[in-house]
Structures are given as structure tokens and as C-alpha cells.
Nucleic acid binder design. Structure first.
Lengths: 216, 216
DNA sequence: TGTACATCAGTGAACGCGCGTTCACTGATGTAC
DNA sequence: TGTACATCAGTGAACGCGCGTTCACTGATGTAC
């Protein structure tokens, strides 16, 4: 049996090895947890290090600076969103309208289930995104998926709407709902939403906003 | 003629009086200007004082703390939004659908024209809003206006939609568009929107999202 | 299997910074008589 | 109209704080022979 020093109660887990093993991964997931707690201003490198049970200098062996860590977090978010939307669309079957709606619902569900990722993805004070090409690429993946799904629906139904405008409308409604829910007034206005789950609401709203276009 | 000391170039205007005259007002409008510049993390009390040409202790003779200044800013924003929406609805005439759409367009226009107010209004890290009853009241005014306009449209057309759901859908789409435009990816994606004005886009999108419900 | 040595990934002290807030002060202003 | 005095609204030094980042260091780990 390995010697296992007693860990102080409430203190971060005591490492048994000097080297951490997978600090990079731990820093990312700790930062994510912090972002999930709400206020992004509480997401500091020093606090991340603290919670990871490591000195505040340690992260610099894995990331050149704070912005780089946030960029990784954002990129992971976009990839996750892409994957979840891909699955949702696949599950929705062949009907282009159903696929479009599933995409929207998946967007809102992602934001609600991964608020940390969502916040970091749309935070503006991360610095120039152009410095992180893989982040840009991941974001574009999501956008392309939206555009092509929307295009599929328009073509299938020979709708007379401008693709860009349709895409913007769809994006706006789910982004708005997600934002109002995750960080906005809806967070506290449960009186409004009662005991309906966000998913039900999202389904209702996207149905109202998107499906309508198809059935006119 | 009053004696007028030469002001240093680039420095804040030199006061000729020891007392400022209307520092409270100036602090508010300076804070607003800062919020309009983009990143709310740059909106600090000290910077506000600096730009107002006053020491950083001075604001405390007009506001108990930073949160109180932000609360005033937010409240002004809500009142302004309410007024602009009221005018837009009045201008739209009697048709309930046209009124509803005008309300939505006014929301987006407000966000675009007053991004500072918009940012502060929806910032979560201001502290507990319940501490500022007049702020709450102003926000509710806007919400009530939205709800009653939506209700008017539903009744006039005997729509079979849930009021809350309709309200949420309408709010989501304009809030999403505003957010994506003011602080989100649309800010830089002018490729998407081309040379169309945000107002045209907002009109198109709200028409697509809201009017459709009525014409089904 | 053992040893020498390079490299990796931590530590912890330090730097410089800007923030919100407090406080004793003082010059300017308003008011009573 | 002039004067005494209270109050208002500034000043500027100071406090304590947490942040991002750097750096010389050192213990742990991996590799060549």
C-alpha cells in the first residue's frame, strides 16, 4: 500500500505524487466548473490553480496565459455543441423541418446543461479570437451546420425566404432564449415558466418561431 | 469675462468652480459612455471619476457605492426603452400585429443605439436587483408593455397560442438578435449582414418570427 | 539492474497594477440675522 | 449689504485586496549507457 498523507478536511485533495499527472486536463475542467457557477469575473487563473490544489505559477507550464485557457474552454464548447446538434438532427429523421427544430432545441439544451461553456463561448473579453484558429474553426463548424440545415428546409419546402435572414432568425430565437435563461431575467422569473422544463419551453418556442415559416 | 484657466490638451476639461455643479449627472453619463465602449470590465468607478475630471473619492458624495451607480444606469435604460417602445407602438397604429412587430423592432433598435444601457441592463454581476425597487419597477414596466401588446395580438386574432409562450418567443428573438449584434459574433460578421442596416434585418426577422404566427 | 544526467513540472517569493472604499481635511457655498 | 457660521462637495493619502505574470529554485521523472 502506498503511503497516503492525511488530507486536511475541506482542503483540495492532496497529491501523493509531486507531479500532478494530468494537470492540464484538471485545469480545464476546474475552470469549467468555475464558469458554471455563474459570474465569469470569478474565473481567475489563481482561483483555478487554488481549486486544482496547485500553486498559481503551475498553470504557466501548460498554458502561455489566461486567454489561452479560455480559448481551449470555448473551443471545447463549440465542438461539444456541434456534436450534440449533430446527434439531435440525426435523431430527428429525414423531415427538414423536424431537423431544423431539433437543431434549435439542442442549442438551448446545450446552453442550459453546459452554462459554463456557453458563457465562455460568447464572452467578448477573451481577447482576439483570430489568435486561436482552431477555436474559429470549431465555431464555424457549428455555423455551417446551422446554415446547411436551414438551407435544407428552405429547399425542401421551396420557401420564399432569404437564407441569411432565416438563419439569423433561427439563431436569434434560440440564442435569446438561452441567454435569457442562463444569465438573464428568466433565471429568477420562474413564476413565468412555472414548472415547465426549459426543454418543453424551447420546443414550444422553436416550433412557434420556426415551424410556422414552413406551414404558411 | 470670467477667468478661464488654460486646460491642458487632452486632459479633462478644467473646472472653473471648485464645486462641480452637477457631478451626479456627469458621473452617470460618463459611466454610460464607458459602457458604450464595449467591455464592461473597463467600467470602474475610478475611471469614471478620472474622465469626469474629479478625484476618485468624489463619487461617494453622490452614490453610496458602485452598484448604486450601475443601478441608476440600468433603471434609466429601462425607462428609455419603455418610452421608445411606447412611441413605436403608437406610431404603428391600431393593427395589433403591426404593434407587436413595432415593439420588437424598437427593442433591437434600442439595443443597437444604446449598447451601454443595454449591457448594463442585462449584466448579472451588478448585485441584487431587489435592493433597487425603482429599477425593478422600471423593468416590470417594459415587461408589462410586452405582455399586454402580445395579449392584444392574440385576442384580436383569436390565436391558439399560450400567452407566456408567445411572449417568451417574441422576447427571445429580439433579445437574441440584439445580443448577437451588440456583443456577439454578429459584431464582426458583417460579411453575413452585408450592407443591410440592423433595422432592416430586425424588421425582416421579427416579421418572419412574429407575423407568421398571425397569418397561419 | 544501476548510475549519470537532462528535462519536466512543480514551488513560492516577488513585481507591478488597478480596484473599491474610507477618512481627515479644506475650500466653496448658502443661510440667519 | 455685511458678517458668522453651518453645511456641502470636493481633495488626496491610505488601506487592503486579488489579479496576471515572471523567475530562480528544486524535486520527480525519463533516458542512455
Amino acid at each position: 500500500m502506498r503511503k497516503q498523507p492525511k488530507a486536511k478536511v475541506g482542503a483540495p485533495k492532496r497529491r501523493t505524487t509531486y507531479h500532478h499527472g494530468d494537470l492540464r486536463r484538471v485545469l480545464i475542467s476546474t475552470a469549467l466548473k468555475l464558469a458554471e457557477e455563474g459570474d465569469l469575473s470569478a474565473l481567475t487563473l489563481r482561483e483555478v490553480a487554488r481549486r486544482a490544489g496547485v500553486t498559481h505559477g503551475a498553470p504557466y507550464h501548460h498554458f502561455p496565459n489566461k486567454a489561452a485557457l479560455l480559448a481551449v474552454l470555448a473551443e471545447e464548447g463549440y465542438r461539444q455543441l456541434y456534436t450534440e446538434q449533430l446527434q439531435a438532427v440525426a435523431k430527428a429523421g429525414a423531415d427538414p423541418t423536424a431537423r431544423m427544430q431539433a437543431l434549435g432545441v439542442a442549442y438551448v439544451r446545450f446552453a442550459v446543461q453546459h452554462p459554463g461553456h456557453f458563457r465562455v463561448m460568447y464572452r467578448t473579453d477573451i481577447g482576439e479570437r483570430a489568435e486561436y484558429p482552431t477555436l474559429l474553426e470549431a465555431a464555424q463548424l457549428v455555423f455551417v451546420q446551422l446554415t446547411s440545415t436551414a438551407d435544407g428546409m428552405i429547399r425542401a419546402r421551396s420557401l420564399e425566404v432569404d437564407l441569411i435572414e432565416f438563419v439569423l432568425a433561427a439563431w436569434s430565437v434560440v440564442h435569446g432564449l438561452a441567454t435569457l435563461w442562463v444569465d438573464g431575467p428568466l433565471k429568477h422569473l420562474s413564476a413565468l415558466t412555472g414548472n415547465r422544463s426549459i426543454e418543453e419551453i424551447a420546443a414550444g418556442i422553436t416550433a412557434m418561431s420556426i415551424e410556422q415559416v414552413a406551414t404558411r
